[in-house]
Amino acid sequence: MIALLIANSLALASLLIMLASGLALIYGLRDVINFGHGALYMLGAYLGYTVAKVTGFWLALLIVPILLALVGIVLEFLVLRPLKSRSHIEVALVTLGLGIILGQIIIFIYGGEARSIDAPAILSGSVTVLGLSYPVYRVFLILMGLGSCVSLAVWLRFTSSGLFVRAVSQDPGVARMMGINSDQLSLLVTSLSAAFAGIAGVLAGPYLSIDPGMDIVMIVDCLIIVVIGGTGSIAGAIIAALLFGFVQVAGSVFLPNVAALVPYVLLMIVLLIAPGGIGRGRVLN
């Protein structure tokens, strides 16, 4: 029972980690929260649906993130860079508006009904671990989530671009004085974060449903996670995503009537105890 609960919350947290860490990365570099991130995830899911129909699931998992990375590059060049001198709130509002537009275009093309895609044959069915039967697809999700955590950590820790990203997140002014080109980094980070949203979207297909409201649900969840984790803190976001996944799943098992409210209660409790979130973000000076 407990093992199943933890496994389920890890599966959900895997998706949330990919999205929330992308948000935190952009925030770290640009001080902007991308309110359109939910729409990118939705775009990833619907593109995944279309591409998977033609090429199958595995190629979709490769192609869609590349497409989304291109969207991220467009976002960087057409939105974040030109609006660099505007207030962060204004840029955040622009991303909110762009997210609404993107969501509406997707609904216009695909219509209002929910879609679903099947997991590939090798990932359907279930596997028995320690006497517990568990869907293979969720094991795959957990592995993907774990993989993205590890690769993020390796990148940030052991590569020079990762070092620069950490430096800019910690102190943009000093980092710039040391000759770090934050525009170039931002291009990398924005496309990376969009690509992760694409992966999460494709992965969500066989796991959750693909429907017109998915962008709002996901962006609200991710914002809660980013706030709990301490805005801009990637480690905080990962821990908060795990916590969020756990209370969400535990809530739906133990308190099915009010499960929808459990994440908000978590948010309020964290805010009461630590208004800046649990990580060392830059939310409060």
Binding site: A92, V227, N285
Partner: peptide, 27 residues
Amino acid sequence: LIVRTNPLAFMMLTLAAGEMIRHVVML
């Protein structure tokens, strides 16, 4: 509770609180 946070977090929190009320009504 929420005006203590910075403006960006305030924006996110009002969005979250609004969605919470919508969920309460649909319970």
